[in-house]
Design a protein around this nucleic acid. Structure first.
Lengths: 151, 151
DNA sequence: TCTGTAATTGCGAGCCGGTCGCAACTAGCG
DNA sequence: CGCTAGTTGCGACCGGCTCGCAATTACAGA
């Protein structure tokens, strides 16, 4: 799910150990559920919704509760390890910091496609030049219909 | 989308009578609740959420139910009279067709800026060519920081 | 290593925007 | 004017997410 080898995110970036330090540095405890969520994010390596993330995290922490995943994601965001993306419709998405990228979500099937870096740069630049707005492409998603869902 | 991007939207465009024709042309009935919602949209003249729209519509059709407003908005969208926008968290917004444009919302002050038509076209084209995704600008909003909120 | 204690978790209830099924109502054709 | 299928009102329901609370647990300090 991660087609950009050039600017590729290095998963080692947030190996549990380093992430643990980041957490402690913010006065947060390093708990098993949190590590499980982190590992799930590392394993998945891309953008994922809370439900999927919970499912993945179950592998490392079988009893982990959905609410805990939500809380953990918030903590990870505050600490700068992860960030959440609000997709127009449907659930919001999570990904590791450093893997931030503008994505498009299919309104019919929910498929997620990364937007080519070049198109993003073009947009950001052009919008800033003309409106003064500095877009934050990592924090929102575009909506549309994917190739498979459109006739 | 409509041919006149430079000019402001003319509310007269969707006077109940013309809207009625559009509805009938799609095999839909012109009912009092629908007219009430339409008048509320005309009266308000901008983007509004379903709750606010319901409140406004009550003036013309006192007993109108929230579910009816949602359904009506969907119908109006299908017929091309209105469209809905997803902006970040919170409820989605409705506006009259013709008032459509991709907008950016400032994450700090909530300011809304229209994105230049040209930048949008560029983005849509480039994304479609490279990912097969057909974006639907006007149905979602971009997020960023406006000129005044960023130093 | 053991202990105290405050952060964290699991759990279920709850909130909120939005949708659905169904019986009653009504637009509008004939 | 009567028929009938599209609509409405209503309440139950759904999915995403948050909250309150008792039980659990990380980890600083003894």
């Amino acid at each position: 799910m991660r087609p950009e080898p050039s600017k590729a995110f290095d998963p080692g970036e947030w190996e549990p150990e380093r992430a643990g330090e980041a957490l402690r540095a913010h006065g947060c405890r390093v708990t098993q559920p949190r590590v499980a969520v982190l590992r799930a994010l590392l394993e998945h390596g891309g953008t994922i919704d809370a439900l999927g993330l919970t499912a993945l995290a179950q592998r490392y922490e079988p009893g982990i509760h959905e609410a805990t995943v939500y809380r953990t994601v918030n903590v990870l965001s505050e600490v700068g390890i992860a960030s959440h993306v609000h997709a127009g419709h449907g659930p919001s998405l999570v990904r590791l910091a450093g893997d931030e990228q503008l994505v498009a979500v299919c309104r019919d099937c929910g498929a997620i496609a990364p937007i080519p870096e070049e198109s993003v740069a073009q947009l950001v630049e052009s919008v800033e030049a003309r409106t003064g707005f500095l877009l934050e492409p990592g924090h929102f998603a575009l909506e549309g219909v994917c190739g498979e869902c459109s006739p």
